[in-house]
Simulated assay, not measured.
Amino acid sequence: MSTQPPVFTDQDLQARNTLGLPSRAAVAVLDDESAVPALCAALAASQKDQQADAPLFVLGGGSNLVIAARPRHCILQVALRGIRLWDETADHWIVEAAAGESWHGFVDHCLAQGWPGLENLALIPGTVGAAPVQNIGAYGLELDQRLHSVVAWDLHAGRERTLLPEECGFSYRDSLFKRDGAGRWLIVRVRFALPKAWVPRLDYPDLRDFPGLRKDDPRRIFDAVCEIRRRKLPDPAVLGNAGSFFKNPVIDADQAAALKQRFPDLRTYPQADGRVKLAAGWLIEQAGWKGRRLGPVGMHARQALVLVNHGGAQAADVLALAQAVRADVRMRFGVELEQEPVILD
């Protein structure tokens, strides 16, 4: 058991954020969960001595991040590993994964073990620990629909907690972990309840209409999701990006109806609370930004929702483009776009 906190040293972060933005910061790697109490003690001592000028930021895969060249934060990179069948009930396999595991690798591993239920979330970049923060979702499935519990340290209180889904404050691409700020929660393990009576989720049109799809085989659905994502979305290793840069806006039904009258092709999705979700990519494309560049950054030519770094971009370039896109969508449609990636300045 480690009694020493992770050591922070000055490190290069360009390869640790998928937008590929140049950055350096004080970084420590957490690869031993037993070191967390010592970390909490060190943070408490720093705050007591009023030395906490550099707040802590917990980093996963860096796939949802716009990072400055010299952020004021200290970066804790979570590298905890391990996957196990934690429990089993009559209806579910309860599978636990450490926070540093690759999300896509975890989904693939579950299918290989005969534990389906996450296949719609294949190929989403990032780590298992970051997935609940963003409440990731794709192709008709949201993470909170499969979540059993989250094991996290409250770094302010210096104690470990196990939170059930209803305690996580989940909403669309949001959670308690995100709203409480970057330095409060350190997720160390996440558990998922995967159904033994598996039923495919095929509501999403691209998936439902996928040619020749074996709808009774979760591995085939996994493969189809991977193919669809690769066709639509650029590989961050080839062209820097943070995936979908903006959330799909949710607006009042009356506003949506008025917009639909003006723009009959507007893509709308009624929500359970009576509001209506709009396709942000469609709004951005109609505003003329699909494939358009602003300096070294631009909106992708195949998917208008994805902001890409064509090379040499800084955080300021990304934020300038995001502001320009938001302004044009606001002017044309009266709709406010909200960006998904966290800004680390």
Rank of each mutant, 00 (worst) to 15 (best):
P234F: 04
N17G: 02
R72F: 04
V342Q: 03
D328T: 08
D174T: 10
F263D: 05
G140T: 04
L163V: 02
K215Q: 10
G100I: 03
N241Q: 03
L233R: 07
V276K: 05
I75Y: 04
G105I: 14
V238H: 01
R84E: 09
E285P: 04
A272I: 10
T268H: 01
V66H: 09
G212E: 09
D252V: 12
I136S: 00
P205L: 14
A112M: 03
Q113N: 02
E167H: 07
E101K: 13
W115Q: 00
L163Q: 01
P132D: 01
V225H: 04
D203F: 13
L56R: 04
D203E: 08
L202M: 11
E88S: 11
S63Q: 03
W289M: 01
T162M: 01
R214K: 15
L233M: 10
F170K: 14
Q339V: 03
Q261W: 14
V7L: 13
L207D: 07
Q255D: 05
G298S: 02
P296V: 11
A35P: 10
D144S: 10
A25Y: 06
P236N: 02
A131Y: 12
K232R: 15
A157K: 13
W198G: 01
A26Q: 06
R292N: 07
H148S: 08
D206M: 15
P200K: 15
A242Y: 03
P55S: 01
R191S: 05
E142F: 12
W289S: 00
L121P: 00
D108W: 10
E160F: 01
A130Q: 08
D223T: 12
N120D: 05
V342W: 00
L39I: 08
V66M: 06
N248Q: 12
E160M: 05
G183Y: 11
D154E: 05
A152Q: 13
N64R: 14
Q323E: 13
F210H: 07
A99L: 15
G212V: 07
V335C: 04
P71K: 04
G100Y: 12
G62I: 12
Q11G: 01
Q50N: 15
G312D: 07
V199Y: 14
D265I: 12
C74W: 10
A322D: 12
N309M: 10
A182Y: 09
H92A: 07
Q51F: 04
G20Q: 00
Y204C: 09
I94L: 15
T127Y: 09
E142H: 11
V250T: 05
P6R: 14
F8V: 07
T3Q: 08
V133T: 02
V27P: 01
F106M: 11
A253K: 13
E96G: 01
D87Q: 11
A122D: 03
R332A: 06
A69F: 15
L186R: 14
F106W: 09
N120E: 08
F245L: 05
V297L: 07
A258K: 15
A193K: 07
I221R: 01
R179L: 13
W289N: 00
G169Q: 14
L39S: 00
V58R: 02
S2P: 13
D154L: 07
W185R: 14
I251A: 03
R72E: 04
D87P: 13
E167K: 15
M1L: 07
A44F: 09
P205R: 10
A98Y: 07
V66Y: 04
E119P: 01
G20R: 03
L307N: 04
R330D: 14
F245N: 06
G60S: 11
L85G: 00
S102K: 08
